[in-house]
Simulated scan of single mutants.
Amino acid sequence: MRHANNRRAGRASHAARLSRRAALRKRAAARRRRLLGVAALVVLAGLTLAVLGPVRWQGGGSSSSAAGQGVAEPGAAEQGAADRGGGSSPSPSPSPSMSPSPSPKASTHRVVKSGTGEFSTAAANGGPVGTGTIRRYSVQVEGGTGIPAADAAKEIAGVLGDRRGWTANGRDGFQLVSSGPRDFEVKIATPDTVDRICGAAGLHTRGEVNCNVGDQVIVNLKRWLTGSPQFPGPLHEYRALIINHEVGHRIGHGHEGCPGPGRPAPAMMQQIDGLHGCEANAWPYDEKGVYLQGPGVP
């Protein structure tokens, strides 16, 4: 009886050992499958990177700017046509006076097509700059443009007072005023309002360019905020070209051409029609007070 019991106990022990071995083999097989799966994923990832190259983040924090996109630029002939006949007279003479370029340079303000039609005058005054004939001017901005009149006045006064500006000739000076008698007004207006004001004088600005009418320099908001691709400088320089070109007409200057390849384009050149070998330039004079002149254009 005892022997029978021993045999049964031996068989049970052997069966237990076999069961444990089977369980170990199953666990080992499972580990091998997992390792093979990880290795396959590593290989697949390597192949994907090899094909696609490094991945770059394209989330909402992209540094690329959309400013100015979707803004149509007129052809050079179309813009230039609005500036013909500027001559030396302050009478209606549209002038796309190519103005500096947009951004990195472009403004963060949005270009609106229509404003309120009402203008607010900058409550800003300054002392005379330059000598000789001092012309008083005010700066006005149309409602709905998003441009603070005081900011525009400060920038325009800085242009007219710059040593590279018209005061360098020793004959012309300017004074910013907010009230009282004035010789001219600089108005920043939406494209629709520019078309209305300039159109009343028979000028066709087509929502794109500036004009010079009577005692008004009408600056197109679109040009003020986006500049022109023809001018590769900062937006402030493009704005300076608008002001210098238009005010140049007011003090008796006509259009000028390129004086030669590689030389600065005159401020009175219709740079929007092309530079013709000249370098883009916003100022009538250089740092040494030399007038940047070109041949007269009929």
Rank of each mutant, 00 (worst) to 15 (best):
V51F: 08
G75S: 04
A39F: 05
P94V: 08
A67W: 03
R34Q: 13
S101L: 03
Q79M: 10
G75I: 01
W57C: 04
A50M: 11
S107W: 02
P74T: 03
V71W: 13
E73Y: 05
G37F: 15
V71H: 15
Q79W: 14
V55D: 03
P90A: 08
A40V: 08
V43D: 00
S101C: 06
R34N: 12
L52Y: 02
P92L: 11
P94S: 14
A76K: 10
V51M: 13
V112A: 09
S64R: 12
L49H: 07
G75E: 01
G117H: 08
V111Q: 01
L41N: 02
S64Q: 11
D83H: 07
S114G: 08
R33I: 11
M98C: 08
S101D: 10
W57L: 15
G37C: 14
R33Q: 10
A40N: 01
V71C: 10
R110K: 04
S95K: 03
G117M: 07
Q79G: 15
T108C: 02
R84F: 01
R32P: 06
R56L: 04
L41C: 10
V43I: 04
A67L: 14
P102C: 12
S114N: 09
L41A: 13
S114M: 00
A45I: 07
S97N: 08
R34K: 11
M98Q: 04
E118N: 06
